[in-house]
Amino acid sequence: MSAKNVTTASFAADVLQNQKPVLVDFWAEWCGPCRQVAPILDQIAAEYADKIEIVKVNVDNEQQLAMQYGIVSIPALQVFQGGQVVKSIVGAKPKAILVNELSDFLN
């Protein structure tokens, strides 16, 4: 399963007003490490489907969103809860480390 693509237009409904925590994966086609971490995020999304939602923002298409959330390095993974960024992870990391860093939202 591949994560849902979120745009500026759908960001409020999909992310900010979501009842569940949402991990937003800021990525781009030309970013090798983004491609490397994508399958890991798909696995986490499938295994913890009842706890967290994982969506993608393509920074090429949504430069405004990237700027608004201060992205200067990708992949950038930001967890939103109640409309606020509550956790920020930068860079591709192994699954065990990501699961550990996201443990507040997965358990």
Binding site: W30, C31, C34, V59, A66, S73
Partner: peptide
Amino acid sequence: SWCATCDGFF
């Protein structure tokens, strides 16, 4: 940064 191709865009 260690990845110009990833982050130069910003």
